Amino acid sequence: MIPIFLKVEKGKIISGEIGTHSLRKTFGYHAYNKGVSLELLIQIFNHSSKSETLRYIGITEDEKKEVYLRSNLG
């Protein structure tokens, strides 16, 4: 576990511990939402399918649709 301290407001600090697995999943979630291809994330995580990776990073069907709508350059 890695100790973590976050400043959320002036003078307020949240402290706790976070595991490397949580960091890995969080990385995947944010990378996907910033446009990193699902195929690349599958390789990074060594998963065997798109559904496995999406489930792993916590992406729901609605969130997937939103990513595609936001990326429409139309």
Rank of each mutant, 00 (worst) to 15 (best):
E9C: 10
R55H: 12
G16N: 02
S49G: 03
G28F: 01
G58N: 02
I13M: 09
F45P: 06
H47Q: 09
G35Q: 04
E63H: 09
S51P: 05
D62P: 01
I57H: 04
S48H: 10
K64P: 00
L40N: 08
S37G: 08
G16V: 05
H30L: 15
K7E: 13
L54Q: 04
Q43V: 10
F5L: 13
I4S: 11
N46S: 13
E9A: 15
F5C: 13
S49H: 00
G28Y: 00
S51C: 00
G35E: 03
D62L: 12
S48R: 14
F45Y: 08
V67D: 02
L73H: 14
K25V: 10
S71W: 11
G74Y: 11
S48D: 13
I18G: 04
I2V: 08
D62V: 07
L40T: 11
H30A: 12
N72V: 10
Y56N: 05
F27C: 09
G28E: 02
I42R: 02
I13L: 10
E61N: 14
Y68Q: 10
S37T: 14
L23H: 07
I44F: 08
I14D: 07
I4Y: 10
E52K: 09
S15W: 05
P3N: 08
L23A: 12
I13A: 02
L6V: 15
K65A: 12
A31Q: 04
R70V: 02
L38S: 08
I2S: 00
D62N: 12
K12W: 00
H47M: 06
N46E: 15
I59Q: 02
T20F: 14
H47E: 11
K10A: 13
L41A: 01
R55L: 10
K34I: 09
S49D: 01
V67K: 02
E61K: 15
P3H: 09
K65M: 08
D62C: 03
K50Y: 00
L69E: 15
Y29K: 13
L73N: 14
K25T: 05
K10I: 09
H30M: 13
Y56F: 13
E61C: 11
Y56D: 08
L41S: 01
F27D: 02
N72S: 14
I42S: 01
L69G: 07
K50I: 06
S22D: 15
E39S: 11
L69R: 14
H47W: 06
G74H: 12
Y56V: 01
V8S: 14
F45S: 06
F5V: 12
G16T: 02
K7H: 11
G35F: 03
D62I: 08
T53W: 01
N46G: 14
G11Q: 03
M1A: 15
S15M: 13
V67W: 05
E52A: 12
E39L: 06
I44S: 00
G74C: 08
I44R: 06
L54F: 03
L23W: 09
L40Y: 06
K25I: 06
Y56T: 02
S48M: 07
I59F: 01
T53V: 03
K64H: 10
L23F: 15
G35N: 08
R55Y: 05
R55A: 12
L6D: 03
R70E: 11
G58H: 04
H47Y: 09
T26W: 12
Q43F: 03
M1R: 11
G11V: 04
L41V: 01
T53F: 02
E66P: 02
R70K: 14
H47C: 09
L38P: 00
L6F: 11
S15A: 15
S48C: 07
T53S: 06
I13R: 03
K25E: 00
